[in-house]
Design a protein around this nucleic acid. Structure first.
Lengths: 190, 190
DNA sequence: GTCCGATCATTTGGAACCAAATTCTATGGC
DNA sequence: GCCATAGAATTTGGTTCCAAATGATCGGAC
């Protein structure tokens, strides 16, 4: 079991390594565990309900977003699902080819594309979501309902902080400096 | 600001959509927010400190793991970083080519490869980690230290639950059924 | 009516990523 | 000593994802 030992061990070691430097330990632990938990949950769900439905995590999230929000413009779906618009184009095409999703042009604005579930897609979610939710309950089984609420609330505040002040913060950090290009992805033309 | 509105709105809509079906709302909200927070945090860090250091999230995590654990065997690093061994091979090679990481064979067991930071890598982490930690503090700014501890503890329990009971659970769910082939990755030969 | 900037979705190019296959090394029987 | 088995990292083949570039369309200004 690498479990408990490795998590807390890692935190202890990190502190030791930083003996001289003053660091924010609680915040470091919180962030590290957010990412670790997200990976664990995603992997568990991919290997249980999603695998047997032959759906990737991202595809399921997209489906879920359209399901709960109803017919939506793609850019909203991408934002809500936490993926880029380019990725959504591919995922939506896959889901469309599987008959779960419908893509129709906006009636008045020709630039927009609207996504909605087909009847098959609706049936699929009615059938699969309860199984998905069952696994959500499984991974949080060590927490009471109240603790789940507390956890969700704490995480919500993290999301809010980034959504509301993230851009401003990044601007302040760079402070006039170039935005620094990414290494991967299509190269700038010039 | 899609912020506050969209998160709680989404949760409300999901509940409405599931009017008839009994679901575990708290658990659903907890899981949804884990993933949402992880994406937000990763994106913020990639676009601030990591971008200007020309490092991907994964590369930084690998560097961090080797930094805090010291010289380590690759399979342990992969596990700790949450990536496959194959991915680590590529990432390690990139980091080696940039002079931050060293790869040396194990002195007695020729099958093993050990990773450690170069002096340049150590300097790099000494310089960049404080900035990274500063952003960890930023994203959790809406939480007190005690709340961070509570958050980390709750997430730790989720990770533990999956690590300790996940495999068993997945086996019980399939219950004899085929493991269901994955869609991506190299195909089996036969 | 036609340019022109803004705002979409889509295409494109490259890296990240995984799991199977492969290759290399160690070790235990014989 | 030799071979089979096991266990390690790496290679390979494939998908997924992002960000820049592109192409389409809208809405004004003139």
């Amino acid at each position: 079991m690498p479990g408990d030992r490795s998590i807390t061990e890692a935190e202890r070691l990190a502190e030791a390594k930083l003996g001289g430097i003053p660091i924010r330990r609680e915040q470091m632990a919180a962030v590290a565990n957010i990412y670790r938990a997200a990976s664990a949950v995603r992997q568990h769900l991919e290997n249980s309900v999603l695998r047997s439905s032959d759906l990737t995590w991202t595809a399921f999230v997209v489906l879920w977003v359209v399901w709960v929000w109803g017919e939506s413009e793609t850019r909203h779906v991408a934002e809500e699902a936490g993926i880029s618009k380019g990725t959504l184009t591919g995922v939506a095409r896959t889901l469309e080819s599987r008959g779960l999703l419908r893509r129709i042009g906006h009636p008045t604005d020709g630039r927009l594309v609207l996504l909605s579930l087909t009847d098959k897609g609706e049936d699929f979610m009615q059938r699969v979501f309860p199984a998905f939710n069952e696994e959500e309950a499984f991974v949080t089984a060590q927490l009471s309902s109240a603790e789940c609420r507390g956890l969700a609330e704490g995480l919500r505040r993290v999301v809010l902080q980034v959504e509301e002040h993230g851009e401003e913060r990044r601007r302040a950090l760079l402070d006039g400096a170039e935005p620094a290009p990414r290494r991967s992805g299509r190269r700038p033309r010039a």
